[in-house]
């Protein structure tokens, strides 16, 4: 997720402390706390499945690109860095398949991209 969850939670912690103090205008307090609650809800939804999503996606993209390897470091930050590297390579591969007119490869890449948006979909997403 972008921005990453860790700095967002740190920011929300500071915001909660600020809004616990007197003197914060009521409308600003209501806005800050309402949005903070919504963000905490998203973080909670992603907490359990984020690592699974990234491992599954990295495995799928390696398969498409014919790359060996697996995720040994299961920190979210490490999985995300590998995911970024693989998705950048996938963009190159898709553009190359379009240039070459390789429709079968294009279809395989589209299938993974569709699957990736299903994995990442939030329960409250508008689409």
């Amino acid at each position: 997720m972008n921005p990453p969850v860790v700095p967002v939670l740190a920011e929300l912690a500071g915001l909660l402390i600020k809004n616990a103090m007197p003197g914060v205008p009521e409308a600003e307090r209501a806005s800050d706390l309402g949005l903070s609650a919504a963000l905490l809800g998203v973080a909670a939804e992603m907490w359990d499945r984020q690592a699974h999503i990234l491992v599954e996606e990295n495995r799928a993209i390696r398969g498409l690109l014919g790359l060996a390897g697996e995720d040994a470091d299961l920190h979210i930050s490490a999985l995300k860095a590998e995911n970024d590297r693989l998705r950048a390579a996938l963009i190159e591969a898709q553009a190359a398949a379009e240039t070459a007119g390789d429709t079968a490869r294009q279809a395989a890449i589209w299938a993974e991209l569709i699957a990736s948006t299903e994995r990442r979909k939030l329960s409250t997403a508008p689409v």
């Binding site: 921005p3 967002v8 929300l12 806005s31 963000l39 409250t124 997403a125």
Partner: peptide, 13 residues
């Protein structure tokens, strides 16, 4: 927080 919410909620959507 208003800067975070659109990114989290809408990039994948």
């Amino acid at each position: 927080p208003i800067m975070i919410y659109p990114a989290w909620w809408l990039i994948n959507a």
